[in-house]
Amino acid sequence: MNAYAIETKNLSIFYGQFEAVKDVNLQIETGKITAIIGPSGCGKSTLLRAFNRMNDFVPTSRVNGEILLHGQNLYSREIDPVEVRRRIGMVFQRPNPFPKSIYENISWGARINGFKGNMDELVEQSLRSAALWDEVKDKLKQSAYALSGGQQQRLCIARTIAIQPEIILMDEPASALDPIATLKIEELMQELKKNYTILIVTHNMQQAARVSDFTAMMMLSGEGERSGTVIEFDQTTKIFTNPRDSRTEGYVTGRFG
């Protein structure tokens, strides 16, 4: 089996004529946490959403190059995007639980994906994995909207775990949360990494430094350019202590960005 969970080759992503992401070559390692950092508008979300074909819902969007999942191109004709999204889960910037009960938030995804096992068990297991079980075990029938923002986000992680994806994409999952809730999500990521490959977009440098094994630094590709690209990709410690690119250094030390 291929050592990389995801590999991109000369990947460019367009919105109409606009090339939002240009020429990205990444190798995402299995079982690691990879952070994508960079100033806003440089295409982090666009890149992330290409991995689970979420950009398909933007009618003007288009992809050039390849995204390989275990060596298989995600954008080849015979690939069903629904199947891709089942294998690559996603957690969004703002918690977006379904307006259903806590229990149903977990069970729904499992059910539509044909889960036939013991649902109660799955719900408990998923909530435990998301470090939420103790807080909600007595109110599973209550609306997910009764939970705090941090709890809602962990619920969103739990429902993603419940469909047992191979990879979890997180787009600034803690940006709408307070520091304590953020810390909980970060601890959770360390746990999840044992079973999942995680890609996280964050604008928080300390967070990237704390949680990730690898870091991809994205920037607009040059003066007067509107296209973003990955200017440096390496082990997180390297990126933060000894970057090759002076722009990366400037960004991670907070001099600009």
Binding site: V82, R85, N96, P97, F98, W108, I112, I163
Partner: peptide, 23 residues
């Protein structure tokens, strides 16, 4: 964001529309 949540869970268009958006 609700539709995106449903699609990100591997829902088909029909499942997302009838089971998430409609309710």
């Amino acid at each position: 964001s609700l539709r995106e949540a449903a699609y990100a869970m591997g829902a088909t268009r029909l499942e997302a529309s009838v089971q998430v958006v409609l309710p």
